[in-house]
């Protein structure tokens, strides 16, 4: 939990740096940190209170999702450019959000998880 908070915090600092120095003015690792914090924000912190499934997230599911998200964040990715970084993270965020909208451990849920696993190798 603390780790996730720190990741969000660091990502925010990176975002400030990117805003000051520009996309090209910072190392690729800054973009990666920023997008990891966006991943936590969009896929975990944000929750759709008007969606029947996402509205209620039991502790077991919370732990499962946080674990999955932190495993992604633990990975170091290689990118040629920041646009590639953005596209990959946007895709992962989208898949995680689809998971949030799907019944826990249902076939559909597992399928989305499968799609993510290729990024976790």
């Amino acid at each position: 939990m603390l780790k996730a908070k720190n990741l969000v915090r660091r990502g925010r600092e990176m975002a400030d740096q990117i805003n000051i120095l520009g996309d090209d003015g910072v190392p690729m690792s800054y973009h990666e940190s920023f997008w990891k914090s966006e991943l936590i924000d969009f896929a975990f912190l944000q929750q759709d209170a008007f969606d029947a499934i996402d509205a209620l997230c039991p502790l077991e599911r919370q732990e499962y999702m946080l674990d999955l998200i932190l495993r992604i964040c633990d990975r170091h990715f290689e990118f040629d450019n920041f646009e590639q970084c953005r596209i990959l993270f946007k895709e992962m965020i989208n898949t995680l959000r689809q998971m949030n909208y799907t019944e826990f451990k249902s076939p559909q849920f597992n399928e989305y998880e499968q799609q993510l696993s290729k990024h976790l190798a």
Binding site: A4, F44, L45, Q47, L56, C57, P58, L59, Q62
Partner: peptide, 13 residues
């Protein structure tokens, strides 16, 4: 004991 709310930002964070 923790009171579970089902809200991720509360329960986990």
């Amino acid at each position: 004991r923790i009171m579970e709310t089902g809200v991720r930002v509360i329960d986990t964070f």
